[in-house]
Design a protein around this nucleic acid. Structure first.
Lengths: 201, 201, 201, 201
DNA sequence: AATGAATGAGTTTTCATTCAT
DNA sequence: TATGAATGAAAACTCATTCAT
């Protein structure tokens, strides 16, 4: 599953590709083996030397921060688009992205003592959700009582299910259904997750 | 928060006290510093030597298993009692115990690759819940549609909130309320958690 | 030149001996190979594992601090003794110890950015020198114009010669003679240095 | 303190400027942070790429050798001039240059194991000093007993003070005064040092 | 000729686990 | 039986040096 063939120096031109390969490898290995996979294993899976990993990311946590940043950007881009049903799209993506990022969330949670960087915050999510949620409530697609913060809470719950039952998408569906049927994404498949994983910047 | 005072050999009489002190220290340190605290730090906080820690627990995961076993026993004892309202008591305890054991759950989840021992399983929880839940449904205290497995799912969700927002009991209350108001425990306080923490065998 | 024979675990009883062996090995290797010898090489020469080195000393600088502390104690003990000629003894020892500690001084100097711990200071030397110097001046053994701080300055100069001409004791003698003939120690031999090296706590 | 502005290829015209910028950056960083600054940091401070640094200097030690060579040339030029008081000028410059080059001296001393190149030697200094010293002695400006080698020894001592008390020019003055008042340079100021630093080739 | 990314070989550092006392 | 030192096997991290562009 190594991305690049040999270990030839492909030169600076490959820098961006390397960065992406590292993030992807991290996602995979963290998911497969848990938060303590050696960084050297991640570098290896990405097909780069350890030095390259350290050039791109200051350390383990930085990998997670970078993934979060990517996610935020994806979501903010979605939220910025207007049109009917954008809440639906945004929410479904949010759930899928949360599931695809379980490993990174765990990492950050495990190192909570270190404190989060400013640009990784619940507020950012709340901001992106506010307008789309209001629209959806106006159109009576979702209960009027919900706040953006409630939705973030639901994502936290989704994460709880994801870590407790790795790979069990049906459990996630049932869990969301317990809160409200309208929260269950239309396409919650392994393929959708895989797409979200590969899409990282 | 008991620490053994000196370091004289206090004989087997101290063994139990040591065991409890170790589990408590582990809970504290895992919560404070995340899953990677050195075992030596746990031993130190517990006021025992590393040798003693190893005498009681085979390793890091064993600490979590032991805590789980304790929890299971507490809950099964509760479930065995009959009488009106026993579901209420059982559920409230389940939530509190889940929150008090966040650190150990994280540990096990992080090492999920290692596989769980047989006596730590969802089934055991389902078994304990089945009868009390049926009673509560008969008395129309909770929706008839719920299954014991659904409740375990809710506990998973609670765990998700707990790790995402450490110490925020209000978030837990709101989250449970989103599922169903009847799921919010009557006494969900730091004091209740502390009691659950100290209660470990 | 390894101090201990094999690599058997000689148990806690050897802890003190290990500490000493590490300091001695550090002195030797730093002198032979400069300030960048791998700590692993020091551990090896001392006949202990790397972990033992780290148990005794937080890192490279700690080795130097420990050596300084040892030196200070030796000197303060000498300064505390009374009797005629104690300045002579103290000064000669000071020069020898400075030369025997060249490697550690270089280390600390190289890492000056890190700042010194409080208990490693010029003042401590000045304090130890004050009374003995006063006596020597009363007895007209040394020029009345000198201050303890001047003597420390002379030690700094000795260090300059030591690093610039490693092993050249004659250069040290000539240098001290340029300042004042009375500053040249009576016994400034490789044997005296070796004794000072081995004497570290 | 010159930095190349952009990063366009400015052609061979920039080569000299780069060389100087690198040496200056090395002086600064070695002084600030000790002998272990990464070469990449030096290149960065100099405003050039690592490749350029390597084009000019084979490695870390080469930086020091180059600085020494520069110093030697300056001094030999001074020594070649005749006229009354040339010893004075030469000596004062020697002291200033020694202080301005502390960082490089430390570097070479730390790597003493590697051995010096032939053209960096005490003899070269002795040669430059011989005639001027003889004149000064004939004019009774300095004690007749001194040899050129003694003066080199005094420079070694100056270096010892410089590393032990970074930036403390007064200590240097006092130290030289302890040897002989005539050795204290007339202008021993930070400005004079700065001039010597910038003067490199 | 300049840039700065990539390599890869150290070095440092950390712990789980063992074991002498 | 308890203690805490020692081991040793990872893992993290750092840079000098090379090299594609």
């Amino acid at each position: 599953m190594s991305r690049t063939s040999g270990r030839a120096n492909r030169g600076p031109a490959a820098a961006d590709e390397n960065r992406r390969a590292i993030l992807l490898a991290a996602r995979e290995l963290l998911t497969e083996q848990g938060g303590r996979v050696p960084l050297s294993a991640i570098a290896q899976r990405a097909g780069v030397s350890q030095g390259v990993l350290y050039r791109h990311f200051r350390g383990r946590l930085d990998l997670a921060y970078a993934a979060f940043e990517d996610n935020f950007r994806t979501l903010e881009a979605l939220a910025a688009q207007v049109g009917p049903g954008r809440f639906r799209v945004l929410w479904d993506t949010l759930v899928v992205v949360t599931l695809a990022s379980t490993a990174f969330i765990e990492l950050v949670v495990a190192e909570r003592a270190s404190g989060l960087p400013d640009d990784i915050s619940v507020e950012r999510l709340v901001d992106a959700l506010t307008a789309p949620l209001r629209e959806a409530q106006r159109d009576e697609e979702v209960p009027a009582s919900w706040t953006p913060a409630d939705l973030v809470l639901v994502l936290n719950m989704v994460h709880g299910v994801a870590v407790s039952r790795p790979g069990d998408l049906d459990a996630v569906r049932r869990a969301l259904g317990l809160v409200d049927p309208s929260l269950v994404p239309a396409d919650l498949s392994e393929a959708a997750l895989q797409a979200a994983r590969t899409a990282s910047t």
